[in-house]
Design a protein around this nucleic acid. Structure first.
Lengths: 186, 186
DNA sequence: GCGGCGTTGTACCAATCGGTAAATGACGTA
DNA sequence: TACGTCATTTACCGATTGGTACAACGCCGC
């Protein structure tokens, strides 16, 4: 038999796409095997905990990506407004200008919110905190920075919902532009 | 046997809560029978189309509620900024200051988005259009009004996601306050 | 060349899925 | 009081769910 064609690490992004498209409940094992090309045996070899462990790995992977590409840059000493601009670019790229939806957001709204409450909370809390920190380091008022950071993160999530519902990525692009302006004019 | 204890109309709000909590896929018939207290037979008597028809009825019910309590007031000739303020109050009450989540938003992110694309699109499009119309009637620039309306609706959805994820209704309350201010200062 | 190890496909499991059909029984009418 | 109507209950359907067990197989060290 074909041996270790795919590493566990290689499967996670595919799993992420399945969860993104179907949510946690909707991501059936048959859908997962179909998209990954892996049989149940391999899947349960990589993730003995089943679907829950797969979802956890996906969340951890996403968290890691944002940590290295978004949160950490925001928190570096030099960061400041340049890091904020980098965040917007990374975000736009990650969500494919609104065509891709946020897995963590999907989990937050769905019934997976209880199962993965800690990860979901951690992801958004880290994002808001990192952004607020960067704004403070750029000389903004701490309270205002906190409120602005919340507005940006919530705005991105709302834009994802709306652009998905209206099937119009323009909503996402416009929202990102507006949030950029908002932070610049503050 | 007990005869017609519950009307079809009485069941719909309960169904809405089930779909709100579990999403479309996650709302199993057993969960529905448990919450409604109705057997499958009664359910299929009311909704011959099964789960899909139940969800459609829920979406139609929500659409009707927003139409009478939000969209129509926004579109009345007298409307203007008073209707906008009424919208914020109705919205805050409906979503229980962020403790309740938006069924249409949940559907928009989940895999039900294709099944109910028309209703999901219609709901959000109607909301944005009604709000933008009211702003124009209040003397605002049409392009700016459209952008602001989009920002408000997306902001509300994002606030629901974030307050749910962070388990902090403060996010929703603050967002609503900020959006009010934004429209007033424009 | 050989043997062990680890990955893999597959058959299988109970439970549950959404949905159907017919028996059951309470009501309104006469 | 007898009957017909119709909502409700209940048992049941095949399909699919997430998950397990295991045998078959390829790779690697020896």
């Amino acid at each position: 038999m074909a041996r270790t064609l795919a590493d566990r690490q290689d499967v996670i992004p595919v799993l992420a796409e399945v969860f993104r498209d179907h949510g946690f409940e909707g991501a059936s094992l048959s859908a997962i095997t179909a998209r990954t090309g892996l049989g149940k045996g391999s899947l349960y070899n990589f993730f003995p905990g089943g679907k829950a462990e797969m979802a956890e790995a996906v969340l951890a992977h996403i968290d890691g990506w944002f940590r290295t590409h978004v949160f950490d840059p925001l928190e570096t000493e030099g960061g400041g407004l340049a890091a904020v601009e980098a965040m917007f670019q990374a975000t736009d790229a990650y969500f494919r200008s609104g065509q891709r939806v946020c897995v963590v957001g999907v989990f937050a709204l769905g019934d997976a919110r209880d199962l993965f409450a800690a990860q979901v909370h951690g992801y958004f809390a880290a994002w808001v905190q990192a952004l607020a920190g960067a704004l403070v380091r750029a000389g903004r008022d701490p309270d205002q920075a906190q409120a602005d950071a919340e507005e940006v993160v919530a705005g991105i999530q709302g834009a994802l919902v709306l652009s998905r519902a209206l099937n119009d990525n323009g909503v996402f692009t416009r929202t990102l532009a507006r949030l950029r302006r908002m932070l610049a004019d503050r």
